[in-house]
Amino acid sequence: MLALFTRDLKLAFRSGGGFGLALAFFLIVVMFVPFGVGSDLTLLARIAPGILWIGALLACLLSLDRIFQLDHEDGTLDVLATSPLPLSGITAAKATAHWVTTGLPLTLAAIPLGYLLNLPEPAYIWLFASLAIGTPALSFIGAFGAAVTVGIKRGGLLLSLLVLPLYIPTLIFGAVSVTKSVDGLNPLPSLILLAGLTLFSVVLMPFASALALKANLN
C-alpha cells in the first residue's frame, strides 16, 4: 500500500496534471469572484468563507477522475485487483495520495487567497483548520465517485453529478465554521462535526469504493 501511495505521488508530480491544475483552477475561481460581484471589500469579506470553500471543493472535484481512470486504461487496476492488496486498501492509498497532491496544497493556498478576498483576521486559523480537516473527506468521498464511474468513457460530468450531492454536508460544516468565526461566534461545534464526517468518510468510504471497483472490473 505504501508502494502504491508513493507511486501515485510520483506520477502526480511527473505528469503535472492533477497537482498544478487544481491550484490554478482555485486561483482563477477566486479571481473571478470580484469580477462577478464587484470589488467592494466589505461584501467580499462577507462571502469569502463560502467562496474559498466552494473554490477548493470544485478544484478538488477536477482531478477526481484521475484517481482510477488512468490505472484502469492501462490495465494496472486489473493487476492490482489480483495482487495481495485488498481493494479497500488500494482505494484508501489512492485517496490519501489524492489528498496529499490536491487537498493539502489547496488548504495551504487558501490562506493567501483569503487575503485577496479580504477575509477578516480571526478567520484565517479557522479557514486553515476547516480545510485541513475537511479536504480528506472530499478526497475519500470523491474516490468513491471515481470508483463508480471508472468504467464509463467520458464519465467526468456524471462523476460531478454523483459526487457533488455527497459533498453537501462537508461543504456546510466547513463553510459554516469559517463563517461563524467571521461573525465572532464559536466555530468549534461545526468543526467537530466536520471532523466526525471526515473520520466517517475515511473509515467507511474505502469499503464502498472497493465494492464499486469490484463491480466495475467484472
Binding site: 510520483k10 492501462d74 492490482l80 495482487s83
Partner: peptide, 27 residues
C-alpha cells in the same frame, strides 16, 4: 495468482526500474 491482461500495466512516466520496484512493493 499473477495476472497479465492484454494491456501492459506499464506506467509511462516511470522508469523501468521504478515500474518494477513498484510491483515489488505491491507483491
Amino acid at each position: 495468482i499473477a495476472y497479465s491482461g492484454h494491456l501492459d500495466a506499464v506506467k509511462f512516466q516511470l522508469t523501468i526500474a521504478e515500474n518494477l520496484s513498484f510491483w515489488a512493493g505491491v507483491y
